[in-house]
Design a protein around this nucleic acid. Structure first.
Lengths: 366, 366
DNA sequence: TTGTAAGCGTTATCAA
DNA sequence: TTGATAACGCTTACAA
């Protein structure tokens, strides 16, 4: 590939002029500019990003470190990150499947000099400390961190509030024996959703039954397997809150095979509102999480702290969750595709935990 | 952040020695090495990737350009790429949502000097020419290209063979009015699947009925919407081959709402075998595509052509597809989770263009 | 075994 | 408006 020197020679100007043309940094005579473009076109020249970043001290790239997650949520977060980054003129350097804190630190080191900042999604406790390390290297935004951290911005899902909303709904429908299908042990999202579940029970004066808390791992198959446990339990739960939609899907499948009809024999609710949730039979009542927006907002936070360094502003945002009533809980509502457009708050008025109030939004229906 | 000079000073050695220690490139006295590590640790030093790549002329990064695709397939391909890349010591620079050829060229230019090679997934015709451009910049691997290209390696899904297998199965079950739910217009995957469908019909002496070809766009909602068209058609199709699982899901949902029972009233088959396919009710018969492996193999091809440049070897691989019989087509088999383990070849021995021979499987009922 | 110094392809400073 | 030239942080001959 041609370098700036080749172009300068071909155009009969100095490399400084070529650089100016490509950066629009200062005035260049029309004649020189034309010749530079011409030469560049002919030589198929394009500035070498790596070399450029050495002098500018910017890489125009964002690093993204994700844990080993699958599926739609993952893909939507990345899409959100990618599109927002591109809009702001940044590349995205991605690295997933980081299980432990060590892996995170190693990966972040490897990105030194390649990115201007980093988005880190650490689902478990261990990585939290790693983030302290990382944040000394460059601006850092935590995605859905387990605990609110040290000197960096973060954005979290309103897990607690969402779960509280879903479970309260089940209770309002008359259910007392409400089971929960938990996510992986130690997973922050799962823990918060469990907390919301417990609080909703407590607020309704219902004693949580330990046997009604079944452990899963956010996969369909764990949801599938949980069915036998739930059905064997005495008293048999009349409703199940799955900590994510994937598990709810597995559960629905198993219940179907066992001849248990949903919602007649058992109500089922999920969390996330992945695309297919509305196409299940019955369509799944769940808490909608906008993964794309999660990624977008993380980028926005990061770009802000990159653009104004040592402004010292760290913000902790919460991505609200919207409650979506479909038919898997026996709600009286008719099925409708448009449901998702209706932003019924999954919390807000819902107590306690002091969630962000969702502005200008009425909810509807109970 | 500390630079190599800081470390050299602190350790009382030259920068060359520090470099040697970090690269293990040539012998360094134990004493010097210890002092370098010590100093590096103290200063929290790590080599600047960008600067390093300027001299080594390697970036240790792979670029990935994807079209605007969603969902699980997307995420699995990326996971496969990411993991394989990391295993080979490469970073992954990703950029998605590239609709047109221009976008591809621009994005690839922006990656100049940041990556050692690129994986390009171009679903439509337009991008094919762009790949010619790109391949002059650095080694290029095409992911699932529409047409076999010029000087670069590629890996494709056995779309034609998979579709042939699925549709042949439907025909063997006794169906004559087999509809197809197509993907987006001009999409290579879709076109190949349609071709397999048509060929299977032709081989069975069935005249394809234009009204039984419904256009969709690979989304659940397009599958959902297609139902009314299909049900209205006279004669009503007894089987539908959806060109991907997402559309099949939408279709199943709509059929359920319309009171059409699957497979009794209508057989439905999909393509891709996304995770939830087996958890649908009824579980979906489909062609399994290993998206993760697709990504992995693309990386392997790319790394090969990076490591041995001008070896001139370009290989065109095909990722086989395996046919998975579940219950949505009225197969006699009992449901089983293990189904996927049975690797029935998606092509190879199978005729012509090779439909999957389904070993040890009787059919029953149409 | 070590250090000096010449790049790598840019941008930025400073004179001209 | 231009062109030399000194960085940027590193690797790698080449010499010592």
């Amino acid at each position: 590939m041609a370098t700036i020197r080749d172009v300068a020679r071909a155009a009969g100007v100095s490399i400084a002029t070529v650089s100016r043309v490509f950066n629009g940094s200062s005035r260049v005579s029309q004649r020189a500019e034309d010749r530079v473009w011409e030469a560049a076109r002919e030589l198929d020249y394009w500035p070498h990003g790596g070399a450029r970043s050495l002098t500018t001290n910017r890489t125009d790239a964002l690093g993204v470190l994700l844990p080993d997650i699958h599926g739609e949520f993952f893909s939507e977060v990345i899409r959100g990150i990618d599109q927002a980054a591109r809009r702001d003129g940044f590349h995205v350097l991605i690295s997933s499947s980081h299980a432990d804190a060590d892996g995170v630190v190693v990966a972040s080191r490897a990105m030194h000099g390649r990115v201007d900042g980093m988005i880190l999604m650490c689902s478990d406790e261990a990585s939290a400390e790693a983030s302290v390390q990382v944040s000394r290297q460059f601006p850092l935004v935590l995605l859905n961190p387990r605990s609110s951290p040290n000197g960096c911005s973060s954005i979290s899902i309103a897990n607690y509030e969402g779960a509280y909303g879903v479970v309260s709904h089940l209770i309002r429908l008359g259910h007392r024996e409400v089971a929960i299908l938990c996510g992986p042990n130690g997973n922050g999202d799962s823990d918060e959703r469990v907390r919301g579940y417990l609080r909703a029970l407590a607020d309704a004066g219902i004693e949580p039954h330990p046997g009604l808390s079944v452990s899963g791992d956010f996969t369909e198959s764990s949801g599938y397997r949980s069915a036998s446990l739930l059905l064997r339990h005495d008293p048999r739960p009349t409703a199940v809150f799955a900590a994510n939609d994937s598990m709810a899907i597995g559960l629905l499948s198993a219940l179907g095979n066992a001849g248990v009809e949903v919602p007649r024999d058992m109500a089922v609710a999920g969390f996330d509102d992945i695309t297919i949730a509305r196409y299940l039979r019955p369509p799944l009542t769940t808490a909608h999480v906008d993964a794309f927006e999660l990624g977008e907002r993380a980028v926005r936070l990061l770009v802000t702290s990159i653009r104004m360094p040592d402004s010292g502003v760290v913000s902790h945002e919460t991505l609200p969750v919207t409650f979506v009533v479909r038919q898997s809980c026996g709600s009286p509502l008719p099925p409708r595709e448009t449901m998702l457009g209706i932003d019924s708050p999954g919390r807000g008025s819902v107590r306690p935990g002091g969630a962000a109030a969702i502005p200008t939004r009425r909810r509807r229906q109970q």
